[in-house]
Amino acid sequence: MQIFVKTLTGKTITLEVEPSDTIENVKAKIQDKEGIPPDQQRLIFAGKQLEDGRTLSDYNIQKDSTLHLVLR
């Protein structure tokens, strides 16, 4: 499925993911596309910070959802 990741600069990254993918996995995909190390990434969805060990389906993230990427 496709999800979107919006950065603070207003750029939107499109990712191909599975509901069973972990947040860690998603961060690795963002690193592949953007070169941002996962340890600098914070992903936010519906006002919640997403934890590495959980999956997209744990957070009820569905296709065409938009996550927000904050760098630390």
Rank of each mutant, 00 (worst) to 15 (best):
K33D: 11
V26R: 00
D39I: 15
G47A: 11
P37L: 10
D58I: 13
E51F: 06
D21F: 05
L50T: 07
T12V: 05
I61Q: 01
D58A: 12
L8R: 03
L56Y: 01
I13A: 07
Q31W: 07
E18Y: 15
S57F: 06
E24G: 09
E34D: 08
L67V: 09
V5W: 01
T14P: 14
I30P: 00
E51R: 08
I36R: 02
T22N: 08
D64P: 06
K6L: 08
G53S: 07
D58K: 09
N60V: 11
E51I: 11
G10Y: 15
P19A: 06
A46D: 03
L71M: 05
F45M: 15
F45L: 06
G47P: 01
I23S: 02
R72A: 07
Q31A: 10
Y59K: 01
P37R: 06
T7W: 12
V17A: 03
E34P: 02
D58T: 14
P37M: 10
I3K: 00
L69M: 09
D32F: 03
D58W: 06
I3D: 00
F45I: 09
I61F: 14
A28I: 03
T9N: 03
P38N: 05
D39F: 05
G10I: 05
T14H: 13
D58M: 15
V26I: 11
P19D: 11
L67R: 01
D52F: 06
R54G: 05
I36D: 06
M1D: 07
K63N: 08
K63H: 10
K27D: 00
K6F: 11
H68R: 02
T55P: 10
T22H: 14
N60T: 14
Q40W: 06
L43G: 00
E51T: 05
K33T: 11
T66E: 06
I61R: 00
K48H: 15
K63S: 13
D21I: 07
T55L: 14
N60R: 13
L43T: 01
K29N: 13
N60G: 11
K11Y: 11
I61H: 00
I3A: 01
L8I: 14
K6I: 04
D39Q: 11
N60F: 07
T55M: 15
V26T: 15
D58P: 01
R42H: 13
E34S: 07
E16W: 09
E18F: 15
L69A: 08
S20Q: 12
T12H: 12
L15W: 01
L8S: 06
V5K: 00
K6G: 12
L67S: 01
L71G: 11
N25R: 13
D64H: 09
Q41K: 02
K63P: 08
K48A: 09
F4S: 15
S20V: 09
S57M: 05
P37F: 10
T55N: 11
V70A: 09
T12E: 03
K48I: 15
R42G: 11
D58N: 11
L50I: 14
Q62E: 12
G47L: 14
S65P: 01
K11V: 13
P19F: 12
I30E: 00
I30L: 08
G35Y: 09
L71S: 14
K6S: 08
G53Y: 06
K29T: 03
E51N: 04
A28Q: 03
I36A: 04
H68G: 08
L15F: 14
P38D: 12
D32W: 13
Q31D: 03
E51D: 15
G10S: 06
L69V: 03
G53M: 05
K33W: 05
I3P: 00
D32A: 14
R72W: 14
Q2Y: 05
I13E: 02
G47D: 12
K11A: 10
E24H: 15
P38M: 15
D58F: 04
K27L: 13
L71E: 12
K48D: 06
A28Y: 14
P37I: 08
R42V: 08
H68E: 12
D32T: 09
E16T: 08
D58R: 06
F4P: 02
M1Q: 06
K33N: 08
K63A: 09
L71H: 11
T55Q: 13
E18N: 15
L67D: 01
Y59W: 02
G10N: 15
D32K: 06
I61K: 00
A46Q: 06
S57Y: 13
R42L: 10
L56F: 05
D32S: 11
E16R: 15
K48S: 07
D32V: 10
V26L: 15
R72G: 07
V5G: 01
T55F: 14
K11N: 05
D58E: 03
I3Y: 01
P37D: 11
L15H: 01
D21P: 00
M1N: 08
V70T: 12
I36F: 15
E34Y: 08
I61P: 01
V70K: 05
A28K: 07
D39H: 04
T12S: 05
Q62F: 10
Q2D: 11
L43N: 00
E18L: 15
D52R: 03
K11H: 03
V17H: 05
A46G: 14
D58H: 15
F45T: 02
L50D: 00
K6Q: 13
E18M: 12
K33Q: 11
L69P: 00
E16I: 15
V26G: 00
R72K: 05
L15R: 00
N25H: 07
D64E: 09
S20D: 14
T9K: 10
Q40P: 03
K33E: 02
Q49P: 12
E34F: 04
E34N: 14
L69G: 01
I23E: 01
F4T: 04
Q41Y: 04
D39G: 15
I3N: 00
K29R: 13
D52N: 07
T55A: 15
E24Q: 10
V5S: 01
I13R: 02
I3T: 01
Q40I: 04
L56R: 00
Q41F: 12
E34I: 08
S65E: 07
V70P: 01
A28H: 05
G47Y: 12
S57G: 10
K27S: 02
K29Y: 12
L15E: 01
D64I: 06
Q31K: 05
P38F: 13
I13K: 02
I61G: 00
T22A: 13
L15I: 10
T14M: 08
L71Q: 03
E16V: 07
D64S: 07
K11T: 14
K11P: 15
T22G: 05
V70D: 12
A46F: 12
G10R: 12
R42Q: 13
Q2V: 10
E51L: 06
I13W: 07
I36K: 07
A28M: 06
P37N: 07
A46T: 09
T9G: 12
I36H: 13
I36V: 09
I3L: 13
G53L: 11
G53K: 03
S57H: 08
N25T: 14
L15K: 00
S20K: 11
V17K: 00
K29P: 00
G35Q: 10
D39S: 04
N60L: 04
E24I: 03
Q31I: 03
N25V: 12
Y59P: 00
L56E: 00
I44V: 08
E51Y: 02
D21K: 04
V70R: 15
I30W: 01
I30T: 02
I36S: 06
H68A: 02
